[in-house]
């Protein structure tokens, strides 16, 4: 991807690097718990300290997600969330924020059913910067990855502890924007990662690529985020934010006056922790 123009993702990682710190990547599920509240959360994330936003596309059968994100997706679907509405959320977000990168994260079937060419066109036009599609490994690059790159959308691949040096080149080929290192063998929001092992893995990946490496799965607290931030270009927090949404709901599962603040409050404390840690390794 040598010929691509600088993107929002490139600019944001570069800016964070210049500040000598990791980027805070926040995941929230689109439409959770309802469209209006979710749109308000999205709009408030940059101000709370999110550097990059991963917007989860709800799916009925999220095979790589733990209970928190499964539940968030089901809340959103129950509220009538669709892929078209999720793309529209990004379009609305872009009216007030032209700089914060937004990456859609989810599973392939809703995109496949929407239609790949139409999806890429609509997502690009709405201001989406990249895609993370959990169930599309390099073996299926022809489905979405290559068309996405051709359409000017970054395709961000997951690397995992099982991705050894032999396989890593296959994973990194056609990856753009950044590499998402899954810090544990497991589903989202489960075991806590070991910061030392993660730093070693990040260094291993960086010996194969010039792309930034963000680390996620299992990072829940400001303390954990700070520990991971010391050895990575970005820290992803998802389940903890989706849990914060859940805890703020009323007995019927509806948003309350607390919901947006519950998420932004946690993001602010995560941002403070990440900003307080200097990167160990220079670029």
């Amino acid at each position: 991807m040598t010929s691509r123009l600088p993107t929002r993702l490139d600019a944001r990682f570069r800016a964070c690097a210049q500040e000598g710190r990791a980027a805070l990547v926040t995941f929230v599920t689109a439409g959770d718990p309802d469209l209006a509240t979710s749109q308000a959360i999205l709009a408030a994330l940059p101000g709370a300290g999110a550097d990059i936003i991963e917007l989860g596309v709800p799916f009925t059968d999220p095979m790589a997600d733990g209970p928190a994100i499964q539940a968030g997706g089901l809340r959103a679907l129950k509220g009538g969330q669709t892929l078209a509405k999720t793309i529209a959320m990004v379009r609305a977000f872009r009216e007030s924020d032209a700089a914060t990168p937004v990456v859609l994260m989810g599973y392939y079937n809703p995109i496949y059913i929407y239609g790949v060419p139409r999806f890429l066109e609509d997502a690009k036009a709405a201001g989406v910067d990249g895609l993370i599609v959990v169930d599309l490994p390099p073996e299926e690059d022809g489905e979405l990855c290559l068309p996405a790159l051709a359409a000017g959308l970054d395709f961000i691949r997951l690397a995992t502890p099982t991705t050894d040096d032999r396989r890593l080149p296959a994973v990194l080929t056609n990856t753009a924007g950044f590499v998402y290192y899954v810090s544990i063998n497991g589903i989202t929001g489960s075991a806590a990662p070991d910061p030392d092992a993660v730093a070693g893995a990040v260094a291993r990946i960086k010996s194969h690529t010039g792309l930034p490496v963000a680390v996620g799965f299992g990072v829940r607290t400001p303390e954990q985020a700070a520990a991971i931030a010391a050895g990575a270009d970005g820290v992803v927090v998802g389940s903890a934010l989706v849990d914060a949404v859940r805890r703020s709901l009323d007995a019927e599962g509806h948003a309350t006056a607390e919901t947006v603040g519950a998420v932004t409050g946690l993001v602010a404390s995560l941002a403070a922790a990440v900003r307080g840690v200097a990167r160990q390794a220079a670029e």
């Binding site: 959990v134 169930d135 490994p137 997951l158 995992t160 099982t162 991705t163 396989r167 899954v182």
Partner: peptide, 10 residues
């Protein structure tokens, strides 16, 4: 096909 998470590919 093989539509699985990267963790499972190896």
């Amino acid at each position: 096909g093989r539509f699985v998470a990267e963790t499972l590919m190896p």
